[in-house]
Amino acid sequence: MRTRGSQLVVLALLALGAVLMLFPLWWMLVVSLETPANAGAATVEVGALSLFPAEPQWRNWVDAMRAVGTVEWEGFLDALANSILVTFLTVTATVLSCSLVGYALARTRFRGRATLFGIMLATMMLPPQVTMIPMFLVFRELGWVDTILPLVVPALFGNAFFVFMFRQFMAQVPEALVEAARLDGCGHLGVWWRVMLPLCRPVVAITAVFTFIFVWNDFLGPLIYLHSEDKATLAIALNSFRNQYGGLEDVQYLMALSLVTMIPCILLFLVAQRQFIEGLGKGAVKG
């Protein structure tokens, strides 16, 4: 039983941690709503930062979005649409492919299953930088450069970490449920789709959220494969914007656009928080 004193210490430490984590966000928010002069001053000296702007400049956000790219609004909307498309396709492909491979490894028997599982786990040790150039060469040969295919298609082949999570979760599902589904008329695909996937909701949530955040924020992939302005994702657009409006006098626009880019991730986390934490817990216990 914890004493009241130790609880207070824990609470204080957690509060301090939360303040440290939230400070950059708060700083971004304040700067994004400041006048150009105040924003520039706050960037140079933290002491010049007010708790909240006396006159919030909400227009900064609209102006920042409008100013992306060479054509007003078009640059931002194109980048937004591209990010949504790439993220949606990648998240869907990752959830489907990882759960399907996880099902095969957890619930079907075939020669070499353990070896394949081991090889798949070993790929987790491979840094992505190692495969970057060979993959670029392959995609260039396929004529996929400057399309979203190199960003989406690899997701159809699963991700070792998420496959591992799905496999561990599915291995815990009682065998009788699978047998009942088979007798009720399901084949392997039916069992996977109708029984396993709905039962794996926490793992689906965690896979979807992690993949969403990674793909939404991914800069390197789109930088390598997407060259045309109309194909850029938000991360690329933000980088171009930084080159254009990176000066102290325009920093409020950069912060405003950065926050706009972050909003979907924050919203998604808030919406899926319960499932997300449940999934992490299950992964920890059953993994």
Partner: peptide, 28 residues
């Protein structure tokens, strides 16, 4: 098994936890 025209009741019931009773019964 699915083509043998047999139905089985399992020891631990094996009801699909994500489906309602109606959906469980309609499943086959």
């Amino acid at each position: 098994g699915r083509d043998r025209d047999v139905a089985m009741v399992f020891q631990n019931y094996a009801l699909y936890p994500h489906l309602s009773v109606r959906q469980n019964m309609a499943f086959p």
